[in-house]
Design a protein around this nucleic acid. Structure first.
Length: 498
RNA sequence: GCUCCCAUCGUCUAGAGGCCUAGGACACCAGAUUUUCAUUCUGGCGACACGAGUUCGAAUCUCGUUGGGAGUACCA
């Protein structure tokens, strides 16, 4: 009988919960469930600067939202805890392994300062050499090093990587074994000068202590696999099977990033994406259904899940496709759940909107049409509403273009506040300069300047932003609408005027 | 720069030597249904990166080229 499967995800609680965590989490979850094993969540917060408790909480909530229920984890407990590395650090769970390696001669003390290391890198870069620690403390006498440590000198502990030979590993997803020369690999820091372990030490130790049998992780780790193998070997651990899957990509094929894609799981929830849809979409990205189905539940996925069906190439994360799937799921919702979803969507912006639109309301239902432009994804412009009296299409288009440009610049500016007073100041300032008639201006320029009156400009802007001639006060409207939608609609209005 | 990984329609993929004149989904285009829009249905466009080899036979195996990606931290 084989050992029961135990897998984990080990996110680092920095920033917002990431869609990549969900992706890798899903793969691990399915693998564990399919084999009747355990799925563990471990928080890797050994970077004291960047990690936060709030971020960890968001990870728990996001995984639960998606239905990726873990059997063991920080907030649910388990027999192999604690499941947060900072707590394990305090229990001294890593120090002793670093010690053991020193003792065995498989690791050594290094006393280099940050400045020294920087200088080393600069020199290597200048000479076009590989950037690597030059192992200057590797041969130091252990007793001497210990004496320096005892004196209180700051130090790190580095792994003694073989100087020659090759590390070879057969990753089940790749047809050829992955080989890498040991000389390419740095003497990795295992224990930082603050006494905390680096990822490499902590992960290997914890995977062992937690009885992890398979490590399904992103491809970005493939390059440090040799270190992990070496660590397992020197520490006398039976290594888990390592499986490296492709990275989620942006449309330009680079590693998925928040600049180019929504990577924050909380965003999807706020937007009203259903967890079933997101999970289904993520699943199709890396794992294909043997029957060719594109739409299936998490449980169905679990039953057919096969590690060997995972695609190694990094898939492009395509929001358009996700939206299509989401639409299918949404329309299938029971009236009860759909009602809840609609309420949630309305409620999300209700408090901000009500003060804005209430002046124009007589009965509760008026909210629906008053608030419509704020909820709508896009608006339809009518040319006759857009073009003010006394203006023509071309003039209006130019005017909107100038407004858009000014707003765009403002939105991109460092520290700009997209609120009503700032927007009003900005736009009034722009109008001031536009309506100025310069000395010796042509009649044409004079006429154009005269057009820049409050009434027509404000109306055109109002219609461009909301699609309607009536709306709450203009600058409040733009403020609540937000920069993205405002700019987008200004662009749409210009297209209409072509 | 160096090292490693990857490579089928625009995108996600099926395909484990003959079943492939390469299948499906999203997107796109056209048509039908719908007062409009959306949904739904039908049809269309559209790919094995390139070059050598192995083989009777290659999208599938090998090598090279090209392209893309990742790693190169006292971050994970």
């Amino acid at each position: 009988m084989s050992v029961p499967v135990r897998v984990r995800i080990a996110p680092s609680p920095t920033g917002d919960p990431h869609v990549g965590t969900a992706y890798i989490g899903l793969l691990n979850y399915c693998f564990a469930r399919h084999h009747g094993g355990k799925f563990v969540l471990r928080i890797e917060d050994t970077d004291q600067q960047r990690c936060s408790e709030a971020s960890a909480q968001a990870i728990y909530a996001s995984l639960k939202w998606l239905g990726l229920v873990y059997d063991e984890g920080p907030d649910v407990g388990g027999e192999r805890g604690p499941y947060v590395q900072s707590e394990r650090v305090k229990l001294g769970m890593y120090q002793r392994y670093a010690e053991q390696l020193i003792e065995q001669g498989d690791a050594y003390y290094c006393f280099c300062t940050a400045r020294e290391l920087d200088a080393m890198k600069a020199r290597q870069r200048a000479n076009n050499e590989p950037i690597m620690y030059d192992r200057r403390h590797r041969g130091a006498d252990l007793a001497e090093s210990r004496a320096r440590v005892a004196k209180g000198e700051p130090y790190v502990i580095r792994l003694k990587v073989p100087l020659e030979g090759e590390h070879v590993y057969k990753d089940r997803l790749r047809k050829l074994p992955v080989a890498k020369g040991w000389k390419e690999i740095d003497d990795q820091v295992l224990l930082k000068s603050d006494g905390w372990p680096t990822y490499h030490l902590a992960a290997v130790v914890d995977d062992h202590l937690m009885g992890i049998t398979h490590v399904i992780r992103a491809e970005e780790w493939l390059n440090s696999l040799p270190k992990h193998t070496l660590l397992n070997q020197k520490l006398g651990f039976t290594p888990p099977e390592y499986v490296h899957v492709g990275l989620l990509r942006n449309a330009d094929k680079s590693k998925i990033s928040k600049r180019k894609n929504p990577t924050n799981l909380l965003w999807y929830r706020e937007q009203g994406f259903l967890p079933e849809a997101l999970v289904n979409f993520l699943a199709t990205l890396g794992h294909s259904h043997p029957d060719g189905r594109e739409k299936f539940t998490l449980d169905e996925l679990v039953s057919v899940f096969d590690l060997d069906r995972i695609n190694v190439a990094g898939p492009v994360f395509d929001l358009v496709k996700l939206k299509n799937l989401q639409g299918q799921y949404f329309r299938e919702l029971s009236p009860e759940r759909m009602r809840a979803e609609v309420h949630r969507a309305v409620d999300a912006r209700f408090d901000k909107l009500l003060p804005l639109v209430k002046e124009r309301m007589v009965v509760g239902g008026d909210f629906i049409w008053q608030a419509e432009p704020f909820y709508a994804d896009s608006v339809t412009h009518h040319v006759e509403d857009l073009v003010p009296k006394g203006w023509d299409k071309v003039q209006t288009k130019t005017m909107l273009e100038q407004l858009q440009q000014a707003l765009k610049q403002f939105a991109a500016g460092e520290g700009s506040q997209w609120d009503a007073p700032s927007l009003e100041a900005l736009i009034r300032g722009l109008m001031e300069s536009r309506s100025q008639v310069p000395e010796g201006a042509t009649d044409e320029a004079r006429a154009a300047a005269q057009l820049w009156q409050n009434k027509p400009v404000f109306m055109a802007l109002r219609v461009a932003a909301t699609g309607k001639r009536e709306s709450p006060p203009l600058f409040d409207t733009l403020a609540v609408l937000g920069s993205t939608k405002t700019l987008e609609r200004l662009g749409l209005a210009q297209q209409k005027l072509r």
